[in-house]
Amino acid sequence: MDVITFANAKGGAGKTTAALLLASALARAGHRVMILDADPQRWVSRWSEEAGTIDNLSVIADVSTSSVPCHINDARMAGVEYLVIDLAGASDPLVTTVLGLSNHVLIPVQGCAMDAKGAAQILDMLNTFKEQAGIDIAHSVVLTRVPPMVTTRALAAVKALLAQRGVHVLDTAIIERVAFREMFGCRGTLFTMDPLRVSNLLKAQKNAQMFAEEVRGVLPRQAKIRHFVRDKRKMRSVPSKSLSIA
């Protein structure tokens, strides 16, 4: 089972939209998916309550620092293939705990300085895990809310800039689409919306599918979930102050 976490210390970076797109596309492809809604705003949980039962997709709300390891174990025992976690746009013990238990961290970034700073804070936390606890957590940046008219050259320039700093950037950016905004108000997923009522829905669906396929490609072939007790021992070696973000 893969644990995929969406994190950015700044709110409004597109974490929840990206998490729901990934989860729904994976479920659409026939994979068993669970979302842990660890964002106090509970947007995914609210969507789930309106959408009702979705094949291969379940949502867990009311996630806490102490409950995360239990949710992970329960999901694994239930045969879940992909556990997607949507974190709050903040830095707190819950964020630290979830990052430490993730197989891959996806950091959504829009083209603004504040998003970049929020991403840098998450990258600093991941680097601290590696240097002080010996936990090397794979991670990638995903560009979000990219205007449809942005040229390939412009996107390539952004990716090159991040790559120069040693940051892996997914090739598939999440394009700004009406369908992605309306997804939270529909009774279903991006793949059950009416193409006659939503503009460029097919392009939005294709974008989500390409995003999911690329994420699957960067994950280990045989993901291994670290045992919580072992990680907890390692975490004791990391001063709590060094994992906090001012």
Results as ranks from 00 to 15, higher is better:
13 A>F: 11
16 T>L: 03
19 A>P: 00
20 L>A: 14
21 L>P: 05
21 L>D: 04
26 L>M: 15
31 H>N: 13
32 R>H: 09
33 V>Y: 11
35 I>G: 00
38 A>Q: 01
39 D>T: 06
40 P>G: 12
41 Q>L: 10
42 R>L: 12
44 V>G: 02
44 V>R: 02
49 E>C: 07
50 E>A: 14
50 E>D: 08
50 E>F: 11
52 G>H: 07
57 L>P: 02
58 S>H: 11
60 I>Q: 14
61 A>R: 14
62 D>E: 15
62 D>G: 10
65 T>Y: 07
67 S>V: 08
67 S>H: 03
68 V>P: 02
69 P>M: 09
72 I>N: 03
74 D>Y: 06
74 D>A: 14
74 D>N: 09
74 D>V: 09
75 A>V: 11
76 R>K: 14
86 D>L: 04
87 L>S: 01
88 A>Q: 09
89 G>M: 04
90 A>C: 13
94 L>P: 13
95 V>W: 00
96 T>P: 05
103 N>K: 03
106 L>G: 06
113 A>I: 14
116 A>P: 05
116 A>W: 04
118 G>L: 00
120 A>Y: 03
121 Q>S: 05
122 I>Q: 01
123 L>G: 11
123 L>K: 03
128 T>V: 15
129 F>Y: 13
132 Q>W: 05
133 A>S: 13
135 I>S: 01
135 I>R: 01
136 D>V: 08
137 I>C: 06
